[in-house]
């Protein structure tokens, strides 16, 4: 019966405030603290968001694949929910990486897109995320969906080392680790930390939402009634449920 409750743990509001404060601080630091770069000017400030998004796109991939592997080992749909949450947020971060990178490239290289291994591998990661979400969207049965998505996530994550290796193996024009002013470096770290905290919060919230979705699907299917309430499988009686779903605090 406990699994039907959705009470938020104590201190959740404080975590929300801290995450919002972290990302707000990062944005303010990007706009007002970071010095303006001499050659690229204001456009260089895109880099602070771009690097944070690229990191989150990569981190989302690792979380997606790790939780997918745990699902395959344990067959617990909770891990699949983490995997899906990470994939959706990773897709968002990956899309923003491509968008911000393209904006920065136009300002710096005078082109929206160019042949560069790191750009291509970022695009490949984004496309794999798209494929993963397409597969999930094409299947109804939760465990089949989780299993196939997990295999795809693990296959996809094997592409990640290429993102790292590509810049070393191939000659590209993308900067790998350019020297930065200490103030710029500090803002970059703050941005990465702030956006990471914000995305972690979104990850937890999305997973909680998926968990509730799963419970509602169980109720619709009659699984919860028969398993926990002893209701007639063919004639569930929704008005006599002996529990309460705490959807809101």
């Amino acid at each position: 019966m406990n699994r039907l409750k959705n009470r938020r743990p104590r201190g959740a509001a404080l975590v929300d405030i801290l995450a919002a404060a972290a990302v707000a601080t990062a944005i303010l630091a990007i706009l007002f603290v970071a010095p303006t770069e001499a050659t690229m000017g204001l456009a260089q400030r895109i880099v602070y968001v771009h690097v944070a998004m690229a990191w989150l796109g990569l981190a989302g991939f690792l979380v997606m694949a790790t939780t997918a592997a745990i699902y395959l080992a344990r067959r617990d749909l909770a891990w699949d929910q983490w995997s899906q949450s990470a994939a959706e947020l990773g897709w968002l971060a990956s899309s923003l990486t491509l968008a911000t990178g393209s904006l920065w490239a136009h300002a710096t290289w005078n082109t929206w897109w160019t042949w560069d291994p790191r750009l291509m591998t970022s695009f490949i990661l984004w496309a794999v995320y798209c494929g993963y979400l397409l597969v999930r969207g094409s299947l109804e049965e939760p465990h089949l969906r989780a299993r196939l998505a997990a295999v795809l996530a693990i296959t996809g994550v094997l592409d990640v080392p290429l993102v790292i290796m590509a810049t070393r193996w191939f000659r590209g024009i993308h900067p790998v680790a350019p020297k930065m002013d200490p103030a710029m470096h500090g803002v970059l770290l703050l941005s990465v930390a702030g956006f990471t905290a914000f995305f972690a919060l979104l990850l937890v919230r999305r997973r909680a939402q998926l968990r509730l979705d799963g419970l509602l699907a169980d109720i619709d299917a009659g699984g919860v009634w028969t398993a926990e309430c002893g209701a007639d499988e063919t004639h569930p009686t929704p008005h006599t449920l002996p529990f309460t779903l705490h959807l809101e605090e």
């Binding site: 496309a127 494929g131 296959t155 592409d159």
Partner: peptide, 13 residues
């Protein structure tokens, strides 16, 4: 054509 959509990104390298 889902298999093509899944295969192409991974094959690009």
């Amino acid at each position: 054509n889902l298999s093509a959509l899944l295969v192409f990104p991974l094959i690009i390298p």
